[in-house]
């Protein structure tokens, strides 16, 4: 059966480029107040760890060529 081959080796979050944990903590500290979020001190480390994972997931998608894809939500006025 013909299928589209994987265009790149299996990516992993661990293989993502350098997301320094200190940078992520700084991002959390600086951006959260700007959108009205108070990160409780006991959550700071966990939030940064989870956000690092999400940003790494974004890096994984960043270099992948999806072509000219339109994804606007359908909105009927």
């Amino acid at each position: 059966m013909s299928v589209t081959p994987e265009p790149s080796p299996r990516p992993t979050l661990q293989a993502s480029p350098s997301l320094q944990s200190s940078d992520v903590v700084r991002y959390v500290d600086e951006t959260a107040p700007l959108i009205g979020l108070r990160i409780p001190p006991e959550c700071r480390e966990g939030v940064a760890r989870n956000l690092a994972g999400l940003l790494a997931a974004g890096v994984l998608l960043g270099d992948f060529p999806v072509g000219n894809i339109e994804t606007a939500p359908v909105f009927e006025p």
């Binding site: 959260a32 760890r49 989870n50 974004g58 998608l61 999806v66 894809i69």
Partner: peptide, 25 residues
């Protein structure tokens, strides 16, 4: 769930849109 929800609130919108584009692909 708390830390994961809080982290989700801080995801840049461009990543969200990129993820939706990958979904279509």
């Amino acid at each position: 769930t708390r830390d994961r929800f809080l982290a989700g609130a801080l995801v840049p919108a461009a990543l969200y849109v990129r993820a939706q584009r990958f979904r279509a692909w």
